[in-house]
Design a protein around this nucleic acid. Structure first.
Lengths: 192, 192, 192, 192
DNA sequence: AATGAATGAGGCTTCATTCAT
DNA sequence: TATGAATGAAGCCTCATTCAT
């Protein structure tokens, strides 16, 4: 195993450990000491890979709900089934547990920087969804009482609602079941 | 002013200060020192009123979304307009700013105790909503494809979705507008 | 003993301890732990009085060679004996040991800030000396081949030379003896 | 280029880098990492050439003011001009900047070992100067009120005074000008 | 009841040094 | 001989909490 490969593994071990602990106990309660113990490296090594403890949390953005948004891009008619399967796919890839989603949400809430990232990502996703809904309106799938912008926004809101309610202990234990049921209602609500 | 009144005022000053700072900077970043400075009391006084710093956060539950749930109890047909006006009423009384809602959400996420409170409150609310939806189904307002339990759950989810999306920067600046628009879609989605 | 008096004593205990240790072992080798142990207070108390470890060193400026410069201001003819007695007086009040002077010199050398303070102080002292030498030249005490500015500068240099050579182990053990002998030669060198 | 030559060059690169950084930022603030980065070698290499970081500072003695003292040995009458030109020569060869002299002074102050080296060197120089002054007294160049030992000591003190005052920002920008002016006064002060 | 000085456990981070490659 | 990833002891500093006044 080459040096570079070893480095990648070390960094991964640290990230995974931090990941696990943050999601179980939250950022502030997780000590660097805990992370390195779980990762099986020394404290010095931790700071060889991350300048501060806070720097690790940025890797959490990797698993934000927006990470796979680009997959939504080439959706064609009929919109609903493909959109739904895309959303399911995103959730599937995120591989969330309730506690992991809570940790991710806390990460978003815990710093102005992360919050701004969230807003940027949300706007990007919104921009992707707008033409999709426009198209859907033209083909008669969706109500025209609401603008495509609003429809895009409500979709994101629905998605966040499912995730948040679920991570706070509500809904079905299986996130995807909950997601499908919720969007069933939602799509009916915005149908023409 | 009597001694008891003075004490109540002091406690209120502390709570309000903590309240403001938690909502602006989060729980962990807010120091007891900051709170007492803003409240205009000494550190010693703080600990005369609250055994620990964490004890203050429990007062945040005062503004949880469940605080006014009992007002939902005597809803009669037709369900939709009264339910909607109740929800609006709750939001109105909460007097949220985006940052205040973020703080409340962080408070819920930041301790197992608060999370359990949330779950208890949610279940209480759910218990209140179930007969309402049952009634609504009987009178033909709501679809019968979903159980009253599910409808209650989806309502809570919708409510949380609006609040979360909004506090993270999404939706209309006016929370009530956003709420009405969202529940319009939702009620259409669960109509019979 | 009042609270304020107690505070002054605590701060003094810390300063004195730091003072002693810095002069014996140097700034970097002295740990905050050492200081508080010697001062008989806790680490927390240290940081109640000084925001950082470095902040303590600024108190060292109190014993800089310039601290009593203002006493030079009202010197009248003949200049030499009064100037000499002033210099002796300054040294006397500084109460230097060789190691303490070394520590003070290191403090000056160890940060750009302290160095700038030194330069400022030096220029103030120089400004005080210039009219004195001007006066001394007019009354015929000093050579006119050198400007009053240069004479002031050479005086400071001589003073620093004595202190530095002495603290590095040279000269008489008694600093004042060394100072008098040196300025005897110096004043002869700049006599008219 | 032979292997030995390569090694010498590597060591020189390290020494020069350390040299530069110590003089700019001081010993403690200069990290081994900084040195090796500037020298263009790895950390491992550094420790192949020097057992510890502190070992590098001993190379600073190369540029101590005593390094060329032996040139003073065969001074003949008249003493003053030759002594002065020797001192100028020493300063010239040292090639000091103010910051470099500060670094050298800090090196002397920063360890008991270096301080002892300074004292040894000073005593050697003193031993060289004593017969010179004795000779100068016999030929009538210098006052007999002071012993040759004292004269030697005052000379060293003057030299150190010039260097210290200058490196702390005082005197002429050109060190040699400052040196000549100062020793002019000094030699007049010790003339017979 | 109010004060704020004192506490000290415990956190994050630094950095000279080692050693396997 | 050169490399640089890994190490871990040790340092500075924070801050909730206590308690004498």
């Amino acid at each position: 195993m080459g040096r570079e490969e070893k480095k990648r593994q070390t960094k991964l071990a640290i990230t995974n450990a931090a990941f696990k602990l943050f999601s179980e106990n939250g950022y502030e309660s997780t000590k660097v000491e805990d992370i390195v113990k779980l990762a099986g490296v020394s404290k010095g090594t931790f700071f060889n890979y991350f300048p501060t403890k806070e720097a690790v949390i940025e890797d959490f953005e990797r698993i934000s709900i927006y990470s796979e948004a680009e997959k939504l891009m080439n959706i064609t008619s009929p919109v609903v089934p493909k959109l739904l399967s895309s959303l399911i796919n995103i959730v599937h890839n995120l591989n969330y547990t309730r506690s992991l989603r809570r940790a991710t949400l806390m990460a978003t809430l815990s710093s102005a920087n992360n919050l701004n990232n969230h807003i940027d990502n949300m706007n990007n996703l919104r921009a992707l969804l707008i033409p999709i809904f426009k198209h859907g309106q033209e083909t008669g799938e969706f109500t025209q009482k609401l603008s495509p912008e609003t429809l895009a926004d409500l979709t994101i809101q629905m998605f966040i609602g499912v995730l948040t309610h679920w991570c706070l202990g509500g809904g079905e234990d299986d996130l995807i079941t909950q997601l499908m049921m919720s969007f069933d209602v939602f799509f009916k609500g915005i149908s023409s």
